[in-house]
Simulated scan of single mutants.
Amino acid sequence: MPVDLALSDGVATVTIDRPDKRNALDAAHYAALSEAFVRIRDDDAIRCAILTGSGDRAFCAGADIGAWLGRERRLKDLWATQAGPLPSRGLEIWKPVIAAINGACIGGGMTLLMATDIRVAARHATFSLPEGRRGVIAANGGTQRLLRQLPHAVAMKMLLLGDTMSAEDAGRWGFVTDVVEGDRVMDTAMGYARRIAAAAPLAVQAAKELAIRSQDLTLAEGLRMEQLVQHALLASLDATEGRAAFAERREPVFGGH
C-alpha cells in the first residue's frame, strides 16, 4: 500500500510508505492520502490522527516531480475543487492531527504539515519550500498558511528564497511543538495522541473548529460562536460524564454523545 493507516485505541497512524523516494507523492499516494483522511473525518472510532513518513530520511519530499511531468492538465479540473480532498486542500477535519516529522519536509510535505495541529520534529528534520526554483508556487496552502504560522519576514524568506529551516529554528519560531531525538518522535506524538483520544471527542473537535475559524472572524463573532457551541455541549452525555467523574474522583469515559 502506498499509504498505511493503522488504528489503535482511537488513534489512526497514517504513514506515507515510500522511503526509497523520500516519501514523495505521485498520483497514487495523493489518492491514498485523501482516502485515509476522509476515513479519519468520518470514522467515529478515530478520535485523533498521526501523520508521518516511512524511514528516517524524510517526512515527505513533496510531489514526485518525475511522476507528474508530461501529465495532461485539463482546464475543467480547475473547478473540481472537492476532488482528492486533503486537509491542505480544504478538507475539514476537526479531529486533531499530529505530525511526526521524521526527516526532511519539503514542498508538498510542508503544505501537508501546515494543515496539522501539533508537530513533533526529529532533531535532524529540515523544512523548505523550493517551488520557486522550479517555476511554480507552493500551492495547496503554501502561500496562504505560511504567513499565519511564522513571522512575516521569516515566512517570506522561506517562500521567496526557498531556504531550508532547521528543526531547531522551527522550534524557536513555534512552527513545531517539540524537537526531540529521532527515536523519540513517534513515542512523543503517540503520547499526545492518546491523551487527546481519552478526552471528550465532541469538546475536542469543537475546540479545534472554534480556534481555526476564529482566524476569519471578528472577536465578537467568535465569542458568540463559542457561547452557542458551549450551550450545545453542556447538554451532551459527555458533559454529564465529565461532571460525574469529577465528583466521583475517577477518570471519565467519554462516548462522543
Results as ranks from 00 to 15, higher is better:
204 V>E: 03
77 D>E: 13
213 R>Y: 07
197 A>G: 07
64 D>W: 15
109 G>Y: 06
165 M>F: 10
70 G>P: 01
74 R>K: 15
222 G>I: 03
168 E>F: 09
9 D>T: 04
50 I>Q: 06
257 H>F: 00
87 P>E: 11
126 T>P: 05
101 I>R: 03
190 M>C: 12
60 C>V: 04
131 E>V: 02
18 R>N: 15
59 F>P: 03
67 A>Q: 13
10 G>C: 06
56 D>N: 13
138 A>Q: 07
183 D>R: 01
17 D>C: 08
218 T>S: 15
78 L>D: 09
247 A>K: 10
112 L>G: 02
70 G>M: 04
79 W>I: 12
11 V>C: 05
116 T>R: 09
245 A>N: 06
236 S>C: 00
209 E>T: 00
135 G>Y: 07
157 K>Y: 07
78 L>H: 12
124 H>A: 07
227 Q>F: 02
87 P>T: 05
50 I>L: 06
246 F>C: 08
71 R>M: 15
29 H>R: 13
28 A>M: 09
114 M>C: 04
16 I>P: 01
182 G>N: 13
8 S>N: 14
131 E>Q: 14
16 I>L: 14
243 R>N: 02
212 I>C: 06
171 G>A: 10
223 L>I: 12
71 R>D: 08
52 T>Y: 11
40 I>D: 03
132 G>S: 09
11 V>M: 07
199 A>N: 01
33 L>M: 07
217 L>E: 14
160 L>G: 09
228 L>Q: 13
10 G>K: 00
101 I>N: 05
240 T>S: 00
172 R>C: 01
123 R>E: 14
35 E>C: 02
162 G>M: 15
149 Q>I: 01
159 L>F: 14
15 T>A: 02
194 R>P: 03
54 S>Q: 12
46 I>M: 13
201 P>L: 04
160 L>S: 13
56 D>G: 11
163 D>E: 15
145 R>K: 09
59 F>N: 09
52 T>E: 10
239 A>T: 00
78 L>C: 11
28 A>E: 15
227 Q>C: 03
218 T>R: 02
9 D>P: 04
73 R>T: 08
193 A>S: 05
201 P>H: 06
123 R>G: 03
161 L>Y: 14
1 M>D: 11
111 T>V: 12
193 A>L: 08
194 R>G: 03
12 A>G: 02
70 G>Q: 08
4 D>W: 11
211 A>Y: 14
104 A>G: 07
3 V>L: 04
20 D>H: 05
148 R>A: 09
171 G>V: 02
141 G>F: 05
118 I>N: 06
236 S>G: 00
100 A>F: 09
155 A>K: 13
162 G>T: 08
53 G>Y: 10
34 S>R: 07
235 A>K: 00
55 G>M: 12
173 W>P: 00
255 G>Q: 00
84 G>R: 14
34 S>I: 06
76 K>R: 14
240 T>V: 03
31 A>G: 08
251 E>A: 09
85 P>I: 14
203 A>I: 00
110 M>T: 01
233 L>Y: 00
191 G>W: 05
108 G>R: 07
210 L>A: 09
154 V>K: 13
